[in-house]
Amino acid sequence: MELTFWGVRGSFPVARPHARRFGGNTPCVQVAAEGSHLVIDAGTGIRRLGQRLLSQDEARDFTLLISHPHWDHIQGFPYFEPAYQPDVEISIFSIQRQEDKLETLFSGQQHVAFFPTPLEQLPSRIRFLEMEEGQPVEASGFRICTLRLNHPGVASGFRLERDGFTLAYVCDVAPSRDLLLADPRPGISQDAFRRELFENQIRLAEGADLVIYDTFFTPREYAERRHWGHSTLEDGLEICRLAAAENLFMFHHNPERSDDELAVLFEEARKMGESHGVEVHVACEGQTWNLEKGGLTPCE
């Protein structure tokens, strides 16, 4: 199984010199296993992934998981070239939403005012599948579970299991200690829901080999922008420690963060990780990792 980062930047794509090394495309992560093509989020990174997939003749059936419909997680989809191929099938999974269904939002993104080709006119077969919270589904050979996270609107993380390997995608997420940012759920108090959203992070990451985590902020930045819906490395380490997860990937990098700053933060993070018993890595665009039970190695 292989993990490739096609987009690692948060909020908006950063085509500026300060972000060239770690990459400026918005979130898109590919998990490739024998005969299956699974992609998490459709930020601008998905454009080049699509071109790569089309160059591999056998790739005709894709599973796309969408954590939530904020621009940086969907804006690449209109440029995903496989969607323009008649013999391609794309299954788009996301957590159940009461209003503003994902299909409506994808369609709105490609309204004629904003984009030349409406979603409905794309030649590929596109299916939108809603996942019930906490109820695992099977897709592309993975067992996939989704749980809501503390982020404005309705956002969720994913837990993927296959061949004894577990990967958790916990992004975008704010810590639950201060504010409830997520749309409330009827029938549960705000405080109880806030605690549940915290527990959800641990459930997603429980015993995971690898957690891709929203480390957008430093603690100082978080203090100024608690309502933005993002976390710090410290929050991620705490979750990994509580969940007994082994590896954490720093992800969803702040658009203002320069490569040099990120490299320094990563060095500090590695040391902090050691004291939590967590190995810390940093998501870098274009890098591929080999995933095997008990091991995580970068591919050349």
């Binding site: 930047r9 794509p13 085509a15 010199p17 990459g23 400026g24 495309n25 601008t44 440029y79």
Partner: peptide, 18 residues
């Protein structure tokens, strides 16, 4: 100066991807 979608990618770095 870029059309359609930002391209923060190496092959477009000199002319720019915004």
């Amino acid at each position: 100066v870029r059309g359609s979608i930002p391209t923060p990618d190496e092959p477009q770095a000199r002319y720019g991807g915004n």
